[in-house]
Computed example of a mutant assay.
Amino acid sequence: MQRKEWTVDPQSWVEVPVPAFATADEAIARHRLLADGTIVTVEMKPEYGGVTGIWHRGDGEIGLDGEVPDELRIRLMMWHTYWTDRFDPITGWVAGSHAAWWLAEGRRLHGLLQEQLWWRFEILDRFDPASTA
């Protein structure tokens, strides 16, 4: 998620990131919803047996039907399938795979999902080794 700036919640004095698609007031409101458990934290990571790679801890993969536009859901499913078809947990990427494309596409999709689902989910990036999430 690209941050536009940071702001401080005047109630908790916590610094809150403000994404490029939101206002400071919206970011503070979301921060409070996240703190009280209204916003669910999920992880974006590929797993064998999954379809989209969006997982709720302990509850399995979440469905995205109706949550995001069909085009985004299909791109996410293609991204996940690319990984399941070309990655071996023991040996890594199979020859001829484009791991760099997969990682870049995952970053793009993560950003789009964050924007689409911002008021409902906190989506942690668990697929990108460079991620700080």
Rank of each mutant, 00 (worst) to 15 (best):
P17I: 02
R86P: 01
T91Y: 11
Q11K: 14
L76C: 04
W93N: 05
A35S: 14
T84I: 12
L117H: 01
D88F: 06
H98L: 09
A29Y: 08
L33W: 05
A27W: 00
I90G: 10
E26R: 06
Q114D: 15
T7C: 12
F21M: 06
R30D: 08
D9N: 09
L103C: 07
G37C: 07
R107I: 08
G63D: 14
L33C: 07
G53Q: 03
L124F: 04
E115L: 04
E67L: 10
T91A: 10
L109R: 00
A99S: 12
H98V: 08
L113Y: 02
D70M: 08
R120K: 15
V18Q: 04
L113D: 02
G37D: 08
Q116E: 15
D25W: 07
E71A: 13
A22R: 15
W83N: 02
F121L: 14
G37F: 08
S131L: 01
D85R: 09
W6V: 08
G58P: 06
V51Q: 12
G49Q: 06
D70A: 14
H56T: 10
Q11Y: 12
A130Q: 11
R108I: 12
L117N: 01
A35E: 13
V18H: 05
T38N: 12
A133H: 15
E43C: 09
D59K: 15
P19I: 03
V8E: 13
D65L: 11
T38K: 11
W101I: 10
G96N: 06
W13Q: 15
R3N: 14
G111R: 04
G50D: 07
V8T: 15
E105G: 03
L113Q: 01
D70H: 09
D25F: 05
A29S: 13
P129T: 03
R86G: 09
P46N: 15
Q11W: 10
V42L: 04
A99K: 07
E105A: 07
G66F: 03
L76G: 03
W101F: 14
A24L: 03
L34P: 00
L117K: 02
I54P: 00
P46F: 07
A104H: 12
S97I: 01
E47Q: 14
L64P: 02
H31I: 00
E47M: 13
L124W: 09
K45R: 15
L124C: 10
Q2M: 10
D25K: 10
W79P: 00
W79L: 05
R57A: 13
R57K: 13
E105L: 06
Q114V: 12
I62A: 04
R108N: 14
A24I: 02
R3T: 11
D85A: 11
P19M: 04
T132I: 13
